[in-house]
């Protein structure tokens, strides 16, 4: 169980991550919204980041921009990813 509760959007993004990356041994609840997705957290790598970018494009119509610093922030945690989806919805 994650330490911080997931919002419904975070939960659906967690499902997307698990499905996209075929993370069979991880449950939606296991992904702490505030824990890092890459490196020591969920342990995703740079190729996974590309996969996630494509999944975001496919499921949420999100087009990332070329600023790698921004993208790093967006991809840092489930919470940040949810914030990105929220922000793009608003516009």
């Amino acid at each position: 169980m994650a330490e911080t509760a997931q919002t419904p959007l975070e939960r659906s993004l967690a499902e997307m991550i698990i499905e996209t990356l075929e993370l069979e041994d991880i449950a939606t609840d296991d992904i702490d919204p505030e824990a890092p997705l890459f490196g020591e957290g969920l342990g995703l790598d740079s190729i996974d980041a590309l996969e996630l970018g494509l999944a975001l494009q496919k499921h949420h119509g999100i087009r990332l921009d070329s600023d790698s610093e921004d993208n790093r922030t967006h991809f840092a945690s489930l919470r940040n990813l949810a914030a990105l989806v929220e922000a793009r919805r608003a516009t």
């Binding site: 980041a49 590309l50 996630l52 970018g53 494509l54 494009q57 087009r63 990332l64 921009d65 070329s66 790698s68 993208n71 991809f75």
Partner: peptide
């Protein structure tokens, strides 16, 4: 980068 991947997609 994820952005390039999206563009190619």
């Amino acid at each position: 980068t994820p952005e390039t991947a999206q563009r190619l997609r």
